[in-house]
């Protein structure tokens, strides 16, 4: 596909650190997501247990996964911006 010029990013010293953080966060989320699938397949009855306010584990876990994704995203953005600010500023000092 044809595009305009790539965004001018300059040197990004935080790049490697951000990628590593991304991979870590991915595995954290994967763990909880896979947890839901594994419970469903191996111990289905557990999903029907009431856990909060008359709601079963399936509902709480399901909505929890959605909320958790948003939370992780916000934290990730915050940390990435911090890395960029500190590492890229250091580069400019000398």
């Amino acid at each position: 596909m044809h595009h305009g010029p790539a965004a001018e990013l300059g040197v990004d010293n935080a790049s490697a650190k951000k990628s590593r953080l991304g991979v870590w966060f991915f595995f954290v989320y994967l763990f909880f997501y896979a947890g839901f699938v594994v419970i469903g397949v191996l111990n289905y009855e557990l999903l029907s247990h009431e856990v909060w306010g008359g709601l079963n584990l399936a509902i709480v876990y399901g909505i929890g996964l959605i909320v958790f994704a948003v939370l992780l995203g916000v934290i990730y953005n915050y940390l990435c911006s911090q890395y960029e600010d500190s590492l890229n500023r250091e580069e400019q000092k000398p």
Binding site: V23, F25, F26, L65, I66, A69, G73, Y76
Partner: peptide
Amino acid sequence: LAGWIVALF
């Protein structure tokens, strides 16, 4: 929604 996590991270 979980798919976005893979895309972003």
